[in-house]
Amino acid sequence: MNRVLAATLKRPAAGYPDLAAVHAALQALVADDLDHLPLPGSGRTLERWRALAVVGGHDLGLCKLYEGHTDALAIMAELAAVRPPADSTWGMWAAEPPSARVSVRQDQGACWLDGRKAWCSGASQLSHALLTAWDEQGQQQLVAVDLRQPGVTVTDQGWSAVGMGVTASVEVVFEQAEGTAVGGSGSYLSRPGFWQGGMGIAACWYGAAQQVAQRLHGHCLLHDEPHALAHLGAVDATLAASRAVLQQAAATLDLNPGGDCQALARRVRAVVENTCEQVLSHVGHALGAGPYCKDAHFAQLAADLPVFLRQSHAERDLAALGDVARHALPSEWNL
């Protein structure tokens, strides 16, 4: 599947100019059935993550929409939701900043949404979204909603980004918008797939870092420069570490798909985030300004990746990992 995916992706020479172009690319993948990835923990987790990495190396704006769409499909499958409409494209919107909150009222099997949702990638083009809202008991509830209805207003607010700018992750206002509950109260965070999906994000990051690193590799094939080779050595080492961690994590999920994988997910994300930052630094130091100014694909990845990485909460996430580690047995570090 990943070979077909790589062959299908055709990036415009100057990149995707806007969200409409990115969404058209997503629609093409959906039409070719390239959005139905193996589910996390299904025995083919690594195949799923390789697909995300392929799209991440192609374009992170498209990857953001593709990952959200495929994550929404996986969540609905995990929670036994109604099968999505054919050719629909989905966002997965779960950000919960204090300034933007959606409430949900359930009545006779239907859900009614009111409020504002932030960080809604692709909102003006997608047909549907799976989002978190808060019920009358103060519990979080997943809701599937058709975005093409009068009660949904896609604003132009909340997004002024340069990196990842094409995703247009604006705020969306719901006013008595109708939706369908997916799973029960609290099931979004309590299901095994929550942390499994978090590792899928790391695969997207990895794919972009791998593509950035290839520029340095190509340079070193043509130029015998000691400093560039030293940077390539550092890049090789950190990519190898992330690749090993992702492969091991995929095998672990496939062996125990229903297990608690929070600690594993936090480790994976920390390792891959560090790899991405190291790759961006080493490649930039080795190659200078040239690829940032003359290679449109490289420049776009270099602008997008630091923004996408901020789906990690940096030291806050490391502190959470440290809290897990201090309660674990030191023998877990043994070879």
Rank of each mutant, 00 (worst) to 15 (best):
L19V: 10
H227L: 10
Q149N: 01
A53V: 03
I75R: 14
L222R: 13
A240S: 05
I201F: 01
S242V: 05
S42E: 07
Q248G: 14
L79R: 13
H297Q: 15
L246E: 01
G290N: 08
A299G: 06
T180W: 09
E136C: 04
L126C: 05
A244I: 01
Y292E: 12
L222W: 12
A100V: 10
S242C: 02
L9R: 01
R215D: 14
R191G: 10
L147F: 09
T252P: 03
D71V: 14
W134S: 03
G186Y: 00
L305I: 04
Q300S: 13
E175I: 03
A21V: 04
Q247F: 02
G122A: 07
T153V: 14
A265H: 06
L34S: 12
P330M: 10
G109L: 06
D35N: 14
M76K: 14
G183Y: 05
A299L: 08
A81D: 12
L189P: 05
G61R: 08
G57S: 10
G258W: 14
L60Y: 07
Q137E: 15
W90F: 04
A81I: 05
F308C: 01
E225W: 13
Q141P: 08
L253C: 03
G183S: 08
L255M: 07
L221E: 11
L280E: 03
A7F: 14
G198W: 06
M1N: 14
I201E: 05
L309D: 08
H223I: 13
K117F: 04
V307W: 01
Q262K: 13
S42F: 14
C220E: 12
L321W: 13
A270V: 12
L287T: 03
A251N: 01
L321Y: 10
G15L: 15
D304F: 00
H231Q: 14
C261V: 06
R269E: 06
C293F: 03
L189E: 12
H313R: 13
V182E: 11
Q247Y: 02
T238V: 11
F298D: 01
T180S: 10
V271K: 05
V54A: 12
A209H: 00
R50C: 02
V22C: 14
Q210D: 08
A208P: 01
Q157H: 14
Y16I: 06
G109P: 10
H227K: 12
G288P: 08
D87C: 01
D135T: 15
A86L: 06
W195H: 15
Q141A: 06
V283P: 11
A144R: 15
D71R: 06
R44I: 11
R326F: 15
G68W: 00
T45L: 02
A263M: 13
H285R: 11
L321V: 10
L37G: 08
H23C: 07
V145D: 03
L232K: 12
